[in-house]
Write a protein that binds this DNA or RNA. Structure first.
Lengths: 240, 240
DNA sequence: AAGTGGTCTAGACCACCGC
DNA sequence: CGGTGGTCTAGACCACTTC
């Protein structure tokens, strides 16, 4: 196979790509070559083939039946699994252009609720940021973010751009996030900021993000306009 | 180790349990024994140890740092990853008692939208079920479910109990589901059924469920009372 | 340099499916 | 029965962190 030019990516990913390409030429529910065949054709060990297929199964591209074979899945949904995206990434993915208006930005003391969610003490210094997020120029969401004091100089944060990107750049990689999604009626202030009628339905998404060590690195509360925003997700039984 | 009495469960799960127990005795961010140590102590190969740890990483119980070690994660959230549950399971998990009132139940012809989502032709026979779901006796959600004609005799379905359980029993295992969550204002009919004010905010969850071959096996639209229901989920960057 | 996790191999046996 | 995926082993080398 033509994998000998790439040294940076692990072999099982290259194998996964190769199998994926082959699956693309077949119809749904067609059988793929057996693992032992693939292993010979691609000149890798069976474990590498299995690891590659494991990825494809998780992505919903193929499925396996014990004793029978590996088959191409029906592509009904597939794609867009669920990525843990920032507002910026989310809007870009929907084909919209995101912009941001900073409403306030300050270092304050954590309230009891914020402290509890961030695993710190009430009164500890936190960075609080309130922003209006727009898509294609019109208001999409109101957002209030709290960052815990984890060794970052709050003064160096640019409140107008993607926080996730800035966190990544400083080695804060977000690995997991817990969210609660609720439906609320907009009050006067929110309605005015979002250019909506008072009482209009909106989504309130409350999120705490964690790094891979399970430490909270962000708390965010976002209110999305109900008429412009829907929350899409694909749940799979595995992978959890 | 004491794994010699169990033959039904794969060894890597038993190893995962053993490592999990050991992690439970440590504090967050404490180091676990290295993979090579565990492999000797538990008398298994390294691949089995790694596969066990891989599960624990996905569950958020431990984390690994290349070149450094495997550590106990901060248990901040952990648990309740995201299960793909039915209304019944969901309510039980919240400590509520679910009951159901069947509003209508009939075999009809698929509308264009339902047909598109279920991957069938408009006009094909589908089973349509409308139910009011209650928790601890008070209304929680309004639900409309469509089932495609996949070889099940619709007449044998009990509309008053969990559809997921009945589907499982007939070998329809749901493997994946795509959902859209939106915020809506209740109209008169919905408000009356849910014992809410007209215009109150509610969550509308639209779901298509798939088996492991990617075939749609259910389409459901559910409207949850906004004052009683929130949608919790944990997103992890991996496992997708 | 020593120790850690990350990748990969070659081979084995088991459990399940279909003929 | 032969072929399939599912599990497991023993060993190797690489990449990275820590000292």
């Amino acid at each position: 196979m033509s994998m000998d030019t790439d040294t940076s990516r692990p072999k099982y990913e290259l194998v996964a790509d190769a199998i994926d390409r082959r699956a693309g030429e077949l119809n749904p529910h067609d059988a793929l070559p057996s693992e032992r065949e693939l292993m010979q054709q691609l000149n890798v060990s069976r474990m590498t083939v299995r690891r590659a297929i494991e990825q494809l199964v998780r992505r919903g591209l193929v499925y396996q039946v014990h004793g029978s074979g590996t088959f191409v899945a029906d592509p009904a949904v597939v794609t867009k699994t669920l990525h843990l995206t920032s507002f910026t990434e989310d809007m870009v993915q929907r084909g919209l252009t995101p912009t941001t208006t900073v409403l306030s930005s300050a270092t304050t003391q954590a309230t009891a609720e914020v402290a509890r969610r961030l695993g710190i003490q009430p009164g500890d210094e936190v960075f609080c940021l309130e922003r209006l997020r727009l898509a294609d120029g019109s208001p999409m969401a109101l957002e209030r973010v709290h960052l815990p004091p984890l060794g970052i100089d709050f003064a160096t944060i640019d409140p107008a751009t993607s926080l996730y990107a800035q966190m990544e750049a400083r080695g804060w990689t977000v690995e997991r996030a817990a969210q609660t999604i609720e439906a609320v009626n907009l009050d006067h202030t929110q309605a005015r900021a979002l250019d909506q009628a008072v009482g209009a339905a909106a989504l309130r998404v409350t999120r705490v993000s964690f790094n891979d060590a399970g430490q909270p690195v962000e708390h965010a509360m976002t209110i999305y306009r109900g008429d412009r925003y829907g929350y899409d997700l694909v749940i799979s039984r595995h992978a959890g």
